[in-house]
Design a protein around this nucleic acid. Sequence first.
DNA 1: GTGCACCCTCCCCCCGGGGGAGACACCAAG
DNA 2: CTTGGTGTCTCCCCCGGGGGGAGGGTGCAC
Lengths: 270, 270
Amino acid sequence: MHPDRVLAIGEFSRLTHLSVRTLRRYHDAGLLEPATVDDATGYRYYAADQIPTAQVIHRLRELDVPLPDVQRILRSPDPGARAALVADHLRRLEQELDRTRAAVTSLRRLLRPEPAPLAVELRAVPETTVAAVEDDVAHDEVLAWYAGAMAELDAVVGDGTGVPGGLYDNALFEQGCGHLLVYRPADAPPRRGRVHPVTLPAVELAVTTHVGEHGDIDVTYGELGAWVVANALAVAGPVRETYLVGPRDTADPLAWRTEIGWPVFRVAAR
Amino acid sequence: MHPDRVLAIGEFSRLTHLSVRTLRRYHDAGLLEPATVDDATGYRYYAADQIPTAQVIHRLRELDVPLPDVQRILRSPDPGARAALVADHLRRLEQELDRTRAAVTSLRRLLRPEPAPLAVELRAVPETTVAAVEDDVAHDEVLAWYAGAMAELDAVVGDGTGVPGGLYDNALFEQGCGHLLVYRPADAPPRRGRVHPVTLPAVELAVTTHVGEHGDIDVTYGELGAWVVANALAVAGPVRETYLVGPRDTADPLAWRTEIGWPVFRVAAR
DNA sequence: GTGCACCCTCCCCCCGGGGGAGACACCAAG
DNA sequence: CTTGGTGTCTCCCCCGGGGGGAGGGTGCAC
C-alpha cells in the first residue's frame, strides 16, 4: 500500500470527474486545498483521501449550492450540523420547484388563445384602522414572511374578525425589496408583538377578483393594469390584496377568491 | 377609453413587475421593443398591449429559458409551434430535476458516516470483438445518446447475446465531452446503421460492482479510484462499465448491478 | 421658471464556469 | 545529458442575466 502517493491535478481530475480548471478554482476559493503545493513551481498535489471531499463538493454544486455555502458545509465538523445545512438547501430547492410550478401554471394561462374578459370595478375605499404587521422584505422572502406575519396576526386578533388583506409596495417588484403590510380589520386594534394599529389611507381602487391559486396572479395583475391604462388612469401607491376565500377557508384552490385593488388617479388625456 | 396612452418605462415597470433595468436590457436584446422611442431623448414609451408580452417573458425567465429562446418563442406566430418550444423547455427542466434527484441520492451516500468497504478485483481482460455504437458526445447529452445507441444495438444484434457494456472516455468528465462506445458481445458482429464491429484492446482492469440505480455511481467511481491509488496503480484509458443487471432485466433498482472497470498500470513506488 | 422625480448611457461588479496565450516543469527516450 | 511532448502554471477575456452607482439630460406640476 502507498496511502500517501501524491496525485497531480490531472490525475486527481480523472479520479473525481472535476475539471482541472474547476479544481484550481476550488483551490483559490479555499474550498479544496491540495495536500501540498510546490513552492517553487506552484504545482498542486492532492492526496487520495481528498477524493470523497471532492465528490461531496461536486454533488453540492450539482444542487446549485453556492461555493461559500459549500465551504460552510465542509467546515462544519458535526455531521448533524452538516445534515441541517444540506436540508436547508433542499428546502430552498423545494421552494424553487414551487416557483417553477407557479410559472408553468401562469404561462399556460397567458398562452391560452381566448382570455376571459376581466370584470373591473372602480371603488372608493374610506380610511380604515386595522391590526397590522409590517416590514421591509426582500422579494424571495415574501412567502415565508407572509406565513409568519399572518400566523402572528391570527394569534393576536383571532381569525373571525373580518377579511384579512395586505398592502404590497411597488418597489418590491421594481427594486426587489419593499414594504409589506398584512392586516385584519379590528375595532380596537391591540398592540402586541409585531401586531399594532395602522390607519390605512382612503384611496380610489381599481378592483378585480383573482380566482384560484396564486401561481398565475401576476397575469391578473397585468390584465388589471391594462384596464387601468385603457381607462386613462395611473397607478399610485401600494397594491392592496384582500383574501376573500383562501387556504384557511377551503382546501379547494379553485374556490379561492383574492381581490386585487390598485390605487389609481385620473390622468389627463393625450 | 385611451387605448394608445403611452407608458413611460417606470409606469410599465409597475404594471409588469419587471424592473426598469431589466426592461432596458430586454430592449437592447430585441426581446421587447418599446412601442416608440424618442429619438432626441432616448426615452422609451410602451403601449398597454405590450403588458401580456412582458408577462410571458417574465414567466419564461422564471423557468430559466435563455433570452434567445424566449425570443424564438415570441417570434413564432403559430400557437402550436410556440407550445412545442415551451414543452421542449419543460422537458429540459424535467431532466434537470432528475439530475437533482440523483445528486441528492449520491450526497446521502457520501455523507453516510460508515461507508461500506469496497470489494475490488484486479482482472486481466483479453482482446474482444463486439458489436458497438460509438460517437463523440457532450456531457449533458450522455443519457439521451445512451438510450438511442443501446436501442439500436438491441434492434440489430438482439438482446440475448451476452452482457452489454460501455466505454467512457475520461475527457468526457475533464473537458465536458468525449468519446463514448456501447457494445454487445457478438461472434460475428454485423455492420448496420451505426452498429459496427469493434475490437476492444486487452487491458488490466480494477473492477468493482456498483449496486442500485446510477444516481450515486460517481461515489463508487471515487472509491474505486481511491483503491487504485492506494494500490500504487494509475489509470489508463477509458472507463469500462458492464451492465450485469439493469432496467431491462428487472424493474427493481435495488437489484441492479453495474460492473465498473478502470484500466490501470503499475507505477513506481515513491 | 424652478424643483424634483424621472429617464438616459456607461462602466464595474456578482456568480461559476470555459477558452486560450505564453511560459515553465516533469519525465522518458535517445 | 539533451530533447521533445505533455502536463501545469498564471493571467486575461468571455458567457448569461442581472444589480449598483455615477454623471447628466427631461417632463411636468406648481
